[in-house]
Write a protein that binds this DNA or RNA. Structure first.
Length: 427
RNA sequence: GGAGAAGUCGCGUAGUUGGUCGAGCGCGCGCGACUGGAAAUCGCGUAACUGCCAAACACAGUUCGAGAGUUCGAAUCUCUCCUUCUCCGCCA
């Protein structure tokens, strides 16, 4: 969500930004919200004046009553009640206008960073840099579920019977590997100065609204029946939500948190849960990182954060690349975003394993989170988030890249302490 | 889940026959005086949001857990909800 004052003063920038994101259908909203805003301020002004009158009269009535001047007081009361209808009408209008304005402002996309490549959809995303050699071995790499099955590590059939499509049972060494990766990722981030956090896995609707767009909400979030609670789609939601309505002292910045949580996603409308295996599922686990920082620091943090992901994957011998999201592929709240993609020697292409985003002040504005500056003035901080690692998806990359010709899977040195010292997994 | 108590300005509290309470006091914090410097002491200041404005000040409005109501007027009265604490029940 952008500042309505910014929109009022720079409608052309906002319109161009909408065009850059290929959302021309939203262009009329700009003029509409400007008109509503003007009307809202007029309404508020008039209502304020009437309320000021009432306050003034009420004080006088108090004085008159004390002096026993009953009649004068009654006359004064009438003055106030005479304006009742008008005031009530204005107040109702204020509420209505404010709601409509907020609704529209939620739809207007955040202003993207000038560095973001312009393009209509994910086909225009830009590869920035590769890390590690994307090797294709001499032997065939089986589908990831097949590798897991060789270790008796997965049971999709039972998961289908028990929970339906999009769920999985992990077993034995594969399940242990899943936990090892999370634990390693957790310590990796702790070593880089982040505070480990386990957040709530369900959150209120107003927090959901604060951290994501309506679109994302509809296609991702599971709602608990009969309660104002949603299952989180990522711990980012409850981590950023932690600061709702808060004013942070400036010296508490940057807030650097790394969190563990299960994640629940409907994946409605996505390429389908049809994809076999554990690539796209309704439930997975994730180690996440979030930053709350001063606006001038957010781009530095953005750069640092995606590099953490690269470093982590490289330490597990997985080749990756950085893919920058183009304007049309960028969610409405985001200023800039990139994916870290892991190499799949089976598919001979890269696939998404991490997503790093700078949201600017959009979440802060929605959540009313502020920072008290040194000058005593409050300002909106910037928020960022990035995946550290999200198994089981990352296990696909791990198994494919660490598979040996004899069918065993080697455990990179960094992970061994979390796998009971094993150097290799043998089927 | 049941029974009780409570939610006030960063913290602790005052504030019930509704009116000069957006709110007193203490602590904390900031500025100043005193001091060679400090401690102590004294003085002043110290919430958020919105409108007006280029901006600041000033002014106006809103906010005493949230929402609704009664009233000319509500921190103070009524209702609903939320949260916290204590006791009981249940349970990882």
């Amino acid at each position: 969500m952008i500042d309505i004052r910014f929109l009022r003063e720079n409608p052309d920038i906002v319109r161009q930004n909408i065009k850059n994101k290929f959302q021309d259908a939203k262009l009329p909203l700009v003029d509409e919200v400007i008109a509503l805003d003007a009307e809202n301020r007029r309404t508020q002004q008039e209502a304020n004046d009437l309320r000021a009158d009432r306050n003034r009269y009420s004080k006088e009535i108090g004085n008159l009553m004390r002096k026993g001047q009953k009649e004068e007081a009654e006359a004064m009361k009438k003055k106030v009640t005479d304006a009742d209808d008008r005031r009530a009408a204005l107040e109702a209008k204020e509420v209505e206008l404010a709601a409509r304005i907020r609704e529209i402002m939620m739809l207007i996309p955040n202003i993207i960073d000038p560095s973001v490549p312009i393009g209509p959809d994910d086909s225009a995303n830009v590869e920035v840099e590769r890390f590690g050699e994307p090797v294709v071995p001499q032997f065939d790499i089986p589908y990831h579920t097949e590798i897991m099955e060789r270790f008796a590590g997965i049971d999709m059939d039972a998961a289908g019977r028990v929970s339906g499509n999009g769920f999985y049972y992990l077993l034995g060494d594969i399940a242990r590997l899943h936990e090892a990766v999370l634990a390693y990722a957790r310590d990796f981030m702790i070593d880089r100065g982040f505070t480990f956090c386990i957040p709530p896995f369900m959150i209120h609707g107003n927090v959901v609204e604060g951290v994501m767009s309506q679109n994302d909400m509809d296609s991702m979030m599971y709602k608990i029946e009969g309660e104002d609670l949603y299952l989180i789609g990522t711990s980012e939601h409850s981590m950023i939500g932690r600061y709702i309505d808060q004013i942070l002292p400036e010296d508490s910045l940057p807030q650097k948190l790394t969190s563990y949580s299960p994640c629940f996603r409907k994946e409605k409308g996505a390429h389908g849960i049809e994809e076999r295996g554990v690539y796209r599922i309704h439930q997975f686990e994730k180690q996440e990182m979030i930053i709350v920082c001063r606006p001038e620091d957010s781009m530095d943090w953005y750069e640092r954060m995606w590099r953490y992901s690269v470093e982590l994957f490289r330490s597990l011998d997985i080749p990756v690349r950085q893919l920058e999201c183009c304007s049309g592929d960028l969610a409405d709240l985001k200023v800039k975003s990139c994916d870290i993609e892991a190499w799949s020697p089976r598919q001979k292409k890269y696939f998404e394993v991490c997503s790093c985003s700078n949201l600017g002040d959009a979440q802060a504005r929605r959540l009313k989170m502020r920072v008290k500056g040194a000058d005593g003035k409050n300002y909106l901080p910037h928020t960022l988030n990035n995946t550290v690692v999200a198994p089981p998806r990352m296990l696909i990359a791990f198994l494919e890249n660490n598979l040996c010709a004899d069918g065993s899977v080697k455990i990179p040195a960094a992970l061994r302490p979390y796998m009971g010292g094993k150097e290799v997994l043998v089927p």
